[in-house]
Computed example of a mutant assay.
Amino acid sequence: MQGLAPLYALLQCTGISTITCFKLADYLSCELSQIPSQPISNLLSAGLTRAQIAQLRADYTQPIERLYAWQAQANDIDRHIILCTDEHYPQTLLQVSDRPLLLFAEGNIELLACHQIAIVGARRASEIGKQQAHNFAQQLALRHWVITSGLAQGIDAQAHRGALSAQGGTIAVLGHGHQHTYPKHHCVLRDQILKAKGCVVSEFLPH
């Protein structure tokens, strides 16, 4: 995948936030993927230290190969590595200044381009609150809205279940890498989302 290595290098660079990455690209008048290969003098003038430049130019072949291995290990579920420059990168995220450079997704990434409504809330929600979340998600899904939530206990889980009950699309945004499911017993819900042609996405490395 062209462009993955330089974006991965930017993620590994200590003290450089995603906002800084975009500012660097503007300052250097180059694409994000071209930052690591810029002349050292230009990178120094942009405010990077020699230690940061060394990190940008380190050999990340092995961890990148692990990413490709994660992508290839999927059985009956598609796995995707989405660069912030890819056509499948969510257009709404492009409006966010500190948007992730990379996204890691399982399932139907076409949902990322659909109209979405996020339903999130308390983990220790009341029974009435959980029922309302379920009903809202169900009714919105029936009207072809994709329901986005965080796979957490409480309101989030009921939002996903409400969308599934209407045979609608739902996206689970993880707060960690794909190697984990939290809470653990939501592995079942996660599988249900994927089997229903939903999507599970994270900005965190999947290993």
Results as ranks from 00 to 15, higher is better:
G3H: 03
P6I: 01
P6H: 05
L11T: 10
T14R: 14
G15P: 09
I16D: 04
I16T: 00
S17A: 10
T20G: 05
F22K: 01
D26F: 09
L28F: 10
S29V: 06
C30P: 03
E31G: 05
E31S: 07
I40N: 07
S41I: 11
N42C: 14
A58T: 04
D59A: 12
Y60T: 01
Y60K: 01
T61R: 11
Q62D: 14
P63Q: 07
E65Q: 14
L67A: 02
W70D: 02
Q71L: 13
D76T: 02
H80Y: 14
L83I: 05
T85S: 14
T85C: 10
H88N: 12
L93G: 04
P100V: 00
L103E: 02
A105G: 09
A105R: 01
A105D: 04
E106D: 06
I109K: 00
A113S: 14
C114I: 06
A118M: 13
V120S: 10
A122L: 06
R123Q: 10
R123K: 11
G129I: 02
K130G: 12
A133V: 08
H134Y: 15
F136E: 00
A141F: 14
L142D: 08
V146S: 03
V146D: 06
S149A: 11
L151M: 14
Q153N: 15
G154K: 00
D156K: 07
A157W: 01
A159Q: 06
G162V: 04
S165P: 08
I171P: 00
V173Y: 04
L174K: 01
G175Q: 03
H180D: 05
Y182A: 03
P183E: 10
K184P: 08
H185M: 02
H186F: 10
C187A: 09
V188Y: 13
L194M: 08
K195G: 04
A196N: 13
K197F: 15
C199Y: 02
P206C: 12
